[in-house]
Structure formats: C-alpha cells, structure tokens
Design a protein around this nucleic acid. Structure first.
Length: 156
DNA sequence: AGCAGGTTTAGCG
DNA sequence: CGCTAAACCTGCT
C-alpha cells in the first residue's frame, strides 16, 4: 500500500511528487509537461506546498533516513541544520561532521531522498554553485527564492 | 578490488 | 581567470 501525492511549485514551474508508505519515503521533481492533479492531505505535502508559496521556512514532518548508510545519515542530519536563506560549502559540511571527505559529502547529498525538506540545495561549492542531482537550474531557483524571501520574512 | 562521484587545491599558461 | 591533475573518502559492482 503505497500512496502518492502531487503538488505544483510555481517558483520551480514544475510538479513535485511525494511518495508515502507508512511514512514519507521520497520526493522528486517531475519534468513532464502534462497537467497533473494536485492532492495535499499529508503533512509533508502541505508543508512543502506552504514552503513553495513562501509561507514556511522549516519543516516539522518526520523523515525516515534510518536505512541509509551511516555516513549519509550524518551528512543529511547536518544538512538539516542549515538555516533558510543561508548556504555552506561542501568542505564546511565535511568539517562539521568531522570528516574531510568532501566528495563523499556530495555523493551522500545526491542520494537525498527528501530534497527541499532536507535542504541539500543550501550546500554549494567553494567557488560556484556546485551540483544538484535534480538539475542545477532547480537548485538555483530555490536559492534565489530563499534569498528574496528572507528579506520579506525579516521585514514583516 | 576497482571505479565513479553534487569537490578541492595547487600548478601552469 | 581558465584548464589540468592529483589527492581525498564513501558506497556500489
């Protein structure tokens, strides 16, 4: 029994698919042009939708990453601490978990099952934006969006 | 074992 | 500044 919800992201101009089991198990961006029907009943879908509408900065929903390798879990848990509208580099993230495996950090991020919820887009290269498994264009838009939105949050 | 990464640094033009 | 090469560590075959 698997359950699927779809929301639309205006800022990314694409649909986003959330797969649930008993818990949320994956998030991905849909590339196709086709119109899809949106459904938002689960907490993660609702919170993610609010995020895309600029009404939410952090997430309360549960994310199960227990089956991932230990190193990946460390990386993702550390990534969750990065605040809205800010960025750190791959090497800094490696430092924070007491490792020098900057490349492996990138590898762990590329396997992030919950993009946006676990803000791997906030990890950038020392010079340049770095990569993003769903496409660097998405990463760029997310960062731009958060940067502009931070100003709004602070001044309101 | 071997290999490929969402990197980084240094070295050279 | 741009390009190349090598070192770094983890996870998959």
């Amino acid at each position: 029994m698997t359950y699927r919800e779809i929301i639309f992201s205006g800022i990314l101009d694409c649909f986003v698919e959330l797969d649930y089991n008993t818990e949320l198990c994956s998030i991905r961006f849909l590339k196709g042009e086709e119109r899809l029907k949106e459904t938002r009943t689960k907490i993660a879908s609702i919170e993610l939708d609010e995020y895309f509408k600029g009404k939410r900065k952090d997430f309360s929903c549960e994310m199960d990453i227990s089956r991932l390798p230990a190193f990946s879990r460390k990386v993702l848990n550390e990534t969750r601490k990065i605040k809205y509208g800010t960025t750190i580099t791959y090497s800094e993230l490696a430092d924070r978990i007491g490792s020098r495996a900057v490349r492996a950090v990138g590898g762990a991020l590329s396997n992030n099952p919950f993009p946006v919820l676990i803000p791997c887009h906030r990890v950038v290269a020392k010079s340049g934006i770095g990569g993003y498994s769903s496409g660097v264009d998405i990463k760029t838009r997310l960062l731009e969006f958060e940067k502009n939105r931070s100003i709004t949050f602070n001044s309101s």
